[in-house]
Design a protein around this nucleic acid. Structure first.
Lengths: 341, 341
DNA sequence: CTGAAAGCGCTTACAG
DNA sequence: CTGAAAGCGCTTACAG
């Protein structure tokens, strides 16, 4: 270990007190021009770097934000992380990450991150936390430094950022309708998931509004994964009366679905039109290129970070409009086509 | 803010000194049975949580590791992160992440993370750092707390973890050879990238060993991305004499390649056999399912984390065997097939 | 086995 | 505009 220089060292060189050095660094306007110059010089000479552990202890803040992911290995989240990270680093904050699984396995409590000055706030990307954990978070005095993104927990007042899920599902149905499809199936996400439920409800609603027949078995329960998409395809193949189009609650589902169909010599969109949700990077390169409902994941991340930072920095402000709902858009590619009798 | 209880509070309740509480918590064997019980009780009563900022200042450690990614939005890295994260959390360490781009934009120096007690070590997943930065890292007194994973920097002595890149490339060529392909192309990663170079050299070497003709234009420079794969496909289409098989230096390249071919009505493996590298999740679900050289990304992450931790905890030990090279495996799927005249 | 005490390197209210 | 001083909450060498 090398000895790095401290505020003391700088103060000595600049011939001022440590208080003055500290002020020069964090609030330069408050010191005189000449002092500022002398201190800057001394900082350069000594190669001074602030010791964050010391600052953190003194200010009781960590200048870090924790992002909790349900699953680190899911590429859906990487762009969201990018958005969060870019805003945080701009604000001089660090990004800490953890997965729900790990937290669970290690027996740690999420709230401890806030308690023990590891993080100043938490962005949760997992709406399926168990109710025990949610209750603890809700009741915690630091609850105002927790924010949900993408997913959220029904019946709680945590601020959250998400996309227009209802609008997305309805747009998907309408797109298929306009291509003359009348028998439309839906592959859902995990059963209890808030996104699954929201998108499914909107799907049902739009189907009704368009006066389309919806057989109960046409709603196939999945779980957002490639594998569930494959299973759903098998279900579709078994149908006596096959829907001519399907709205999948995620692109991974859609890709798995199409992939499995092709193994049974069905072709998309010849035999069925398929639309996904998310517009992940692979959607465009898939064969056929996937029609999808696009979420701006970068913006979700940035918005989440901004909203959380506002609460960390001004905890007593009124943060009333605490749900940001970001627009989706329909990206039409080649997996959906006009229905031909 | 709520007042959380401190060591002092616990000490008061247990009627011992703060020193004893601290010892009970960090080194229980050294206190008497009865003290241990009393302290544990007091911890429970007070709901004590250690203040990490205080511990970090006192010990001059952060109990965190920084992972530097070239690009947060690249799904290739998520599983590696999972491996790192799971090991770190097991050791009571936190995971900090940053991207090369951000570091660059914010003007921060990587080494500052070590200097200012934000991180105890750094895992770098980016072998394309500019030479200025590399020089600074090499010369830093904390250089022994830096480790490379996946990629590395030629001519430096940083410890590193990577897969058998040469063996992977040669295995790919041999697989195609055994399927009777004799004209084999190669799409490389980014020109200066150490993985690109290593895999390309091994490719050339194996081609020679098998006495195969290799026209210079059959080596197509790419950059690991889907888009570069598309471009490479266009190049292949233009060839007068088309290779019957291609080894792509990444799965994303392979997927882009196949995708573009299909837009021009070529089919894989009918018209050309394609093998990728990495075996990312999508490889299996692609149409056709992609033959690939598999890297165990979870293990890369775990190994990297373990090696780095060993250096952090025992900085003066002999860490001689400081390069771990992990095995690859050939995963045969449907994008490669017997060559038929 | 335990305690008194020093000190990690900052920030900030207070006084001038 | 600046400085002296307290103190954030721990850990650890030292003494007993």
């Amino acid at each position: 270990m090398v000895k790095t220089s401290t505020l003391q060292d700088v103060a000595r060189v600049a011939n001022v007190s440590t208080a003055t050095v500290s002020r020069t660094l964090s609030n330069p306007d408050v010191v005189s021009e000449s002092t500022r110059r002398r201190v800057s010089e001394a900082v350069k000479v000594t190669g001074y770097r602030i010791n964050r552990a010391a600052r953190n202890l003194r200010t009781q803040r960590s200048y870090s934000v924790l992002v909790l992911l349900p699953d680190l290995a899911n590429p859906f989240f990487s762009t969201i992380l990018e958005g969060i990270s870019s805003h945080l680093s701009h604000e001089g904050y660090s990004l800490l990450i953890a997965s729900t699984k790990q937290i669970h396995e290690s027996g740690e409590r999420l709230i401890d991150y806030l308690d023990d000055v590891r993080a100043d706030g938490i962005i949760i990307l997992d709406g399926s936390l168990d109710s025990q954990v949610v209750k603890m978070l809700k009741d915690a005095p630091q609850a105002n430094r927790i924010l949900f993104a993408c997913e959220w927990i029904e019946g709680t007042k945590f601020p959250s950022v998400r996309c227009q899920n209802r609008n997305g599902a309805r747009t998907a149905v309408r797109h298929l309708y306009e291509l003359d499809h009348r028998k439309i199936a839906h592959v859902t996400g995990p059963k209890e998931n808030v996104l699954s439920i929201t998108r499914k409800e909107a799907f049902i609603q739009e189907m009704a509004q368009l006066n389309l027949v919806l057989k109960p078995e046409w709603i196939i329960t999945g779980d957002f994964s490639l594998a569930a998409g494959c299973l759903a395809a098998k279900t579709w193949i078994e149908f006596k009366e096959r829907p001519t189009a399907v709205f999948c609650a995620s692109d991974q589902l859609a890709i798995g679905f199409i992939s499995e169909l092709s193994r049974h010599n069905f072709k998309v969109p010849r035999d069925i039109s398929v639309i996904g949700f998310d517009d992940i990077d692979f959607a465009e390169q898939f064969i056929p290129p996937l029609t999808s409902i696009r979420q701006d994941r970068l913006m979700i991340g940035e918005t989440a970070s901004k909203m959380l930072m506002a609460r960390i920095i001004n905890p007593h402000d009124d943060h009333t409009d605490d749900t940001a709902i970001l627009p989706i858009s329909l990206v039409i590619r080649e997996s959906t086509a006009k229905y031909k009798t």
